[in-house]
Structure formats: structure tokens, C-alpha cells
Nucleic acid binder design. Sequence first.
DNA 1: TAAAAAAGAATGAACGTTCATTTTTTGTCT
DNA 2: AGACAAAAAATGAACGTTCATTCTTTTTTA
Lengths: 192, 192
Amino acid sequence: MTTLTKSQIKRKALVEATIELVNNSGFHAAPMSKIAKMANVSPATIYLYFENKQDLVNKVYIEVKAAFTEYAFATYDPKMDVEKGFEIIWKRIADFKLKECEEAMFLAQCDNTPIIDEPSRQEGIKHLQPLLDLWERGRKEGRIKPLSDYILYAYAINPLSFLMIMQKRGAFQLDEDHLEEAYQSAWSSIKK
Amino acid sequence: MTTLTKSQIKRKALVEATIELVNNSGFHAAPMSKIAKMANVSPATIYLYFENKQDLVNKVYIEVKAAFTEYAFATYDPKMDVEKGFEIIWKRIADFKLKECEEAMFLAQCDNTPIIDEPSRQEGIKHLQPLLDLWERGRKEGRIKPLSDYILYAYAINPLSFLMIMQKRGAFQLDEDHLEEAYQSAWSSIKK
DNA sequence: TAAAAAAGAATGAACGTTCATTTTTTGTCT
DNA sequence: AGACAAAAAATGAACGTTCATTCTTTTTTA
């Protein structure tokens, strides 16, 4: 249990308010004044923690992405068998997307729009390296199809984002059975 | 060759300017004044064709989605064999996403953010019915896995959006070989 | 009590939208 | 066909609002 200083609490409130407002209204309808109000803070206070609105969104993106990948790889060990490693990572990602739904929605929005600047996007990608390493090993061992990382990601990981968004919009319910089906689809699309 | 009236030309210019600006800058950084300038039109003129900015974006979304699905199903015939039908549709969709890249980017952005209102989103979904019908038939004939439409879409169709965006960002090149690999992944993830 | 943090009010710029005019098109009459 | 008037389309400037950001003052912390 890490106790937060008052400063850290305020900053966290700002980050959460940003995520919620951008998720529900979009960047264009998430003014600093509303973010401040939602975080119970004066608009001016935001500028003690962030340079400007762009900086705020960039930093929220990078931090959420870091939290996402940390969660994704928390129970993974590079010494694991390729198939087992992939299953572990995939299921942790699924977990995150369903449980930390707000954060995941925010990432999806950033990944599909120009609201994040290019350096922040690059910074966010870095953290995926363990997965790319796993795939590289899998290809070398002949256990994973010799496809580019982008195609593997498109078929094995990204579908979860689509399902999470549909779930968030109430279009359908992603239960345990669905999740297992989805995992099987994911694995069968990359396994040799 | 359908000849357009002056009105239709102006409206078309507005639609294209909207797509380009929203793609490159995001909704929040696509002011009416810029859209007007890019379409060589006065800001006031936009309001002769659209009620307001929200209406403009909604209508652009619906029209682009309609063009997308019309293209997707243009060479498809419901009497086709399930596998052939899927291949035809999938490849047309891939074609569209790579050739009409701007339009496809715009759709991806709308589908992953709250910039479109709910009725317009529903309207856009309707046009996908032929694909859902094909899948329903495929399930009945035992040729397609008994998965929900959302999961089928997530694994068979949506990955193309991710690949298209990566391609647009210059991250990698989606050539003929990649495309065939992607198609095989798509089909193998839904076939029984 | 000095310094740091936070606040609310203020500021100028930029936005979406409207208004008063001008320009273009259309239809009619010669 | 050409002249003209009514209607429609289009315009640039202007409006009120809202925004991101800053400034000055107050509150909290050390």
C-alpha cells in the first residue's frame, strides 16, 4: 500500500478526470475547466502539474500505456514456453481491457486519432518489447507463423480492443466463454 | 459518368475537406473556418448544406460508411458459396481500406471516439447486414464457427483497420503477400 | 513567517454560428 | 437571343460564447 502525498492525489484526480471526460465526450469536448471541476481543483492548478493541455493528454497517455503493459507482463517470465507465455500475456491483456475499461478505452481513442503527438506515441510503443521478443523467439523456434509483428498484433491482440469497445457501448457481453473462444482465435491465428 | 451540379461539387469539397482535416488534426483541431478555406468556400456556406458542425460530421460519417459498404458488397452475390462470398467481401474491404485510405481512416477515427452521435452510428451499422447474413448462413451450414457476430468481426474484419492505420502512419508496408497472409488469418479464425 | 501551493477572476484568442449584403442563377417577357 | 427582375446561393464581417492560459491574491505548508 503506497500512501500518496496531497500533490500526488491531486495529480491522480486530474489524470482520472481527463480519462473520463475524453472517453465520454472526446478531446474536443473536454475543456480544461471541466477537467478541473471534475478533479475538484482550480483550472490554474492544472498548470502546476502539466505544461498545457497537449502535455496533459500526452502524459496521461504514456502513463496509462505504461500501466497497461506493466499489468500485461506482470506474471510473464521470458523463460516460459512460447505458447504458455503468449497465453499468459494475452489473458492479462484481456483482463486489463475488461477490468480497467476506462483506461483501455482511453488508449484506444488515442491510438486511433491524432490527439497524441508522435513522440508520445513512440514512447508508448516501446513498452511492448517483451511481446515482440516472445514472437521473435516463437518464429525462430518454428512455433509461430513467420509474419510481421504488425500482422501478429492485428490478429492476436488488437481484436480485444474492438470487443472491449463494443462491450463498453453495451452492444454485447464478453463473458468467460466468449473470452476463451477469443483466446483460441487469437492463438490459432498466430501459431504455426 | 455522373455530372455534378455546382451545389454538389461544393458539398463534395466540404465533405472531402472535413475528412482530410479531421484525419490529420482531429475533430478538435478542425474548425469550420479551416474546413471552409480548404473547400474554397465561405464559412457561412457550410450552413447552407449542414445544420451545424455535429451534423456535418454525422453526415460525412454516414455517407462514407455507405460508400464503404457499397464497395464491399459490389461484387458479392448472396447465392455464392459461403467461403467464396467471404473471400470476395474481405478482399473488397481490404481494397477499399488501402485505396480509399482517407475515407477508411476517417471511419476508424469515428468508430473509436465519441465524435459521432449514437443514431448516426446505428445508421452506419445497418449497411453491414449482408455480411451478417452470410455469417448466419455459414453457421447454419456448419462452415463457420458458432461465434457471435462481434467476435467474428473482431477477428476477421477489424484487423484490417489496424493494419491500414499502421500503413498510413508509415510503420510498415502492406503488400500483396502480406495481404494474402492476412486473408488466410482472417478466414482461419472464422472457418469451422 | 517565509515559501509553496492553490485559488478565482481576468485575458486575449479562437471558435461556431448568424447577419446584412452581394453575386449568381433562374425564369419571363420582348 | 437579350434584357430584366425575382429568387437562390454565397459571401465576409460581426456576434456572443467558450476556450486555454495567466495574473493576482489567498490559503496552506514547513
